[in-house]
């Protein structure tokens, strides 16, 4: 099955540098008015950083399919939590809904 993968030192240093650069960009981007894109950019960068940590620091890139599946599963269920909760809130106000008794 999965033998232990030893990444070269350079990989870790490269990823660390990339994470530093992305952190700088995220701060920089926050000071630029991108309209509704500001949070999108912030989250995209955070997502990218998280992905780098997961793939290289946590070795998921070299891990078994089961580990990869576990990672995907966690995101899938968080996505369900978000999507279905927001489904309620996003449709608020579509109908001038007056709860019974008011």
């Amino acid at each position: 099955m999965s033998s232990v993968h030893v990444s070269p030192l350079s990989t870790y240093l490269t990823i660390f540098t990339a994470l530093m650069v992305l952190s700088a960009i995220t701060v920089g981007a926050a000071f630029v008015d991108l309209g509704s894109l500001n949070p999108v950019v912030a989250l995209a960068i955070a997502g990218l950083k998280a992905t780098l940590v997961i793939l290289y620091f946590m070795h998921v890139k070299y891990s078994s399919r089961l580990t990869k599946l576990t990672v995907v599963l966690s995101m899938f269920f968080v996505a369900i939590l978000f999507a279905e909760t927001l489904m309620d809130y996003a449709t608020r106000g579509w109908l001038n809904y007056v709860p019974m008794g008011q």
Partner: peptide, 12 residues
Amino acid sequence: VAGITVYAAMVF
């Protein structure tokens, strides 16, 4: 009947 929208309720 807790106050979620009818749209969400229909889907659920």
